[in-house]
């Protein structure tokens, strides 16, 4: 029974990790860019929800109605006005621009929100659900649901809409996509917008599950990167599997060895398969 409990906890936690990685994975797979600011965007999403929920007097989950469009817009504009231009000058300048963004965001949030740890508190205390001898906290169940809905929404978007198809086509072969009438710059901007929207959701989950502070971005980035490297870029099912694997490793490793395990896991994967487990 203990094993079953561990597996359940790992899967629940793993879904949150997958959520951290999915935006990064999209950007790597579609725009072919490592967004070093992804962790800071997640933290930004967490802050937005933390501030908005009590301000508007709504349930934290409802803040997504505001944070998701807001972050989408931010991503769209950043890619269109900034990162896209840097990409024309090469891979390295683009990488450094996202690095610059991460530094700016981190210190900006530090000045605005100060260094204190934050947490998104939920209105009514969360209990646990008893399933036979298994215990599942309602918080975990909620996170699990949010993550699954997000992944499903992304899958539907990518599979069944013209824009989603154009995004996948651009990831495959940008030249041919342009020859089919796709405005590549716009598609990249939309992809970045979607990635940041996913960061807004991830931020909410992170904020409800753990505490965070302005400098937490780099550890989220690393978790996201581990998930992407294991799951392959641009693949949503791969990201989910990788997130769950990672979640299991964390639960088995325990609280004190959580982060070190993630780093070591990443290095091992990178050493064995320099381009990722599912990479070409």
């Amino acid at each position: 029974m203990y094993v079953a409990q561990v597996i359940i906890n790992g899967i629940m936690l793993g879904n949150v990790y997958a959520l951290l990685g999915v935006g990064m994975s999209m950007i790597l797979g579609i725009v072919k860019l490592t967004n070093l600011a992804h962790g800071e965007f997640i933290v930004l999403g967490a802050y937005l929800s933390t501030v908005l929920a009590p301000l508007l007097g709504i349930h934290p989950i409802l803040t997504l109605l505001i944070t998701v469009p807001l972050m989408f817009l931010l991503g769209y504009l950043l890619q269109y006005l900034l990162i896209g231009r840097a990409m024309k000058k090469g891979n390295e300048p683009a990488l450094l621009v996202t690095f610059g963004l991460s530094v700016i965001l981190q210190d900006g949030m530090l000045m605005f929100f100060l260094a204190d740890s934050q947490h998104i508190s939920l209105p009514n205390g969360m209990g646990t659900i008893q399933l036979g001898s298994l215990e599942i906290s309602t918080l975990h169940l909620m996170l699990f649901a949010i993550s699954l809905v997000t992944m499903a929404a992304l899958t539907v978007f990518l599979k069944y809409t013209y824009t989603g198809k154009a995004i996948r086509a651009t990831a495959d072969d940008a030249d041919v996509a342009a020859l089919s009438g796709v405005n590549i710059g716009r598609i990249y901007a939309i992809a970045m917008g979607v990635a940041l929207a996913s960061a807004a959701v991830a931020g909410l989950c992170v904020g409800m599950k753990w505490t965070y502070d302005p400098s937490a971005g780099s550890s989220y980035l690393l978790i996201a990167f581990v998930v992407v490297v294991i799951g392959g870029m641009g693949s949503i099912p791969g990201t989910l599997v990788a997130g769950i694997l990672f979640g299991l490793a964390q639960v088995i490793g325990g609280a004190s060895y959580g982060l070190p395990i993630s780093y070591v896991l990443l290095l091992i994967v990178l050493i064995v398969r320099p381009k990722g487990l599912f990479g070409k």
Binding site: K89, L96, V103, D107
Partner: peptide
């Protein structure tokens, strides 16, 4: 507090 922010902005502007 502003130091890294300003450095970051200058770096990005220079790259662009």
């Amino acid at each position: 507090g502003w130091s890294n922010i300003i450095l970051g902005v200058i770096t990005i502007l220079t790259i662009l």
